[in-house]
């Protein structure tokens, strides 16, 4: 089970942009909608990147169940059955957004900030948990054409670790028993 939403903020021309990355592990319940809206209320996020929504069909009214009126611009990638699914949401008063890339692994949106006219690219990632698919995900990411991505932020659930320390030792102890 995913444990925490991943908060991230970055400075951009003396203004903070706050992004929330969250593996929501299925979005289809009131409990989840309330958890998301509580989190948005708590920290006034500008951009929300959800992974593993497990939603196959896009409905433009659906994000209103968990978003404030200010978060009103959406990008969606369908789940494959109960696997994956991505939803990116941002505030259209602050950003003029377009989707530049979308598949089952990721959605990338290009956001033009309406006040300072600067661009950022946000990639919302859900990497496969199935070990046999991890290599094709990594290859896809390696070949992603990012030359034109300005101020690129890439985040989400990669289902990959970087170091042995990214895993606790409990499991090793269990294996040794």
């Amino acid at each position: 089970m995913p444990l925490y939403p991943y908060h991230c903020s970055f400075m951009d021309n003396n203004r903070y942009t706050k992004v929330l990355f969250w593996n929501i592990s299925g979005i289809n319940s009131k409990e989840k909608w309330d958890a998301i809206s509580d989190k948005i209320n708590e920290s006034a996020y500008h951009i929300l990147c959800l992974q593993e929504t497990k939603r196959e069909v896009f409905d433009p009214l659906y994000p209103k169940k968990f978003c404030l009126r200010s978060l009103d611009s959406f990008a969606f990638s369908a789940s494959i059955g109960a696997f994956g699914g991505l939803q990116t949401v941002c505030n259209s008063n602050l950003f003029d957004g377009i989707v530049v890339q979308s598949n089952s692994y990721a959605i990338t949106i290009k956001l033009l900030c309406r006040t300072n006219k600067k661009c950022i690219h946000i990639t919302n990632v859900y990497g496969p948990s199935n070990p046999t698919q991890k290599m094709s995900f990594a290859t896809w990411l390696m070949n992603l054409e990012t030359e034109n991505y300005e101020n690129w932020v890439l985040g989400g659930d990669f289902n990959l670790i970087r170091n042995p320390e990214n895993r606790n030792i409990n499991q090793v102890v269990i294996w040794e028993r």
Binding site: F10, N151, V153, L154, I161, N166, N168
Partner: peptide
């Protein structure tokens, strides 16, 4: 009760 804990979520910037 004796959970496996892993870090699988990351955020990067160019």
């Amino acid at each position: 009760s004796d959970p496996l804990l892993v870090k699988l979520d990351w955020v990067f910037t160019s």
